[in-house]
């Protein structure tokens, strides 16, 4: 019998005695196997969703040096992954006409930002009416510090004679533009360009010079 022999072949992974004893229950076994496949598939699918949402932000990332931005999240054509992530964190992105946000998790050499080291952030900044730089935990929270300095705006920054600036990111107080971080907590830097001309052409970010993050002394 052709159809039966296929069923028998399908069960060669089972020991003979099981097959002989439970042959009559084959439809039930088959149903159980289908159920198991559906449950396993659903679990895998949900695990993939969870992993994607935890990792954050999906497609359309734009990289420039150490900075990564997601210009499309603030527009009508945000991808489904970005929308899923935002719906979970409650975040409201910057609209494409409002500006563009970037996050740096490493310095300009590619090494992860280390709270035991000093960093210096120097221009140039792409053309924007205003910009702000702040230090945050990797989850996007502000970092507690006694000075209660969480970030700088382009208007309050102390500039050199040539208009350039240098922001010192350090756990210890520094003269000039000091952006404090906690000695024991990892951090990231968030740069936001408000009312900038580059948001419209963000796919062509290669030619644009972003601030350089260079590592200084480490403890």
């Amino acid at each position: 019998m052709a159809c039966n022999s296929r069923a028998a072949r399908a069960n060669e992974i089972l020991p003979d005695w099981i097959w002989l004893r439970y042959r009559r229950h084959w439809p039930v076994l088959s149903l159980l196997k289908t159920l198991a496949a559906v449950v396993l598939g659903a679990a895998l699918g949900l695990a993939a969703t969870f992993a994607a949402v935890e990792r954050g932000f999906g497609f359309g990332a734009v990289r420039a040096g150490p900075w990564t931005g997601w210009p499309k999240t603030g527009s009508r054509d945000a991808d489904p992954y970005a929308r899923a992530v935002l719906s979970r964190t409650g975040e409201t992105p910057l609209g494409s006409a409002e500006g563009l946000g970037f996050v740096a998790r490493g310095d300009s050499s590619g090494a992860l930002l280390d709270p035991r080291c000093d960093y210096s952030v120097r221009g140039p900044v792409p053309a924007a009416r205003w910009w702000t730089l702040s230090a945050m935990t990797p989850e996007g929270r502000l970092i507690e510090n006694p000075a209660r300095i969480y970030g700088f705006t382009s208007a309050e920054i102390v500039r050199g004679a040539n208009g350039g600036f240098d922001i010192a990111v350090s756990r210890a107080a520094r003269p000039g533009n000091w952006l404090p971080v906690a000695p024991d907590r990892p951090f990231v830097l968030a740069l936001r360009l408000y009312d900038t001309t580059i948001s419209a052409t963000a796919s062509a970010l290669d030619g644009i010079s972003m601030p350089v993050i260079s590592r200084g002394r480490c403890e």
Binding site: V38, G41, L44, G45, T49
Partner: peptide, 10 residues
């Protein structure tokens, strides 16, 4: 089947 179900659920 498992992979197809996983894809649809995802």
């Amino acid at each position: 089947g498992v992979l197809i179900v996983a894809g649809i659920v995802h």
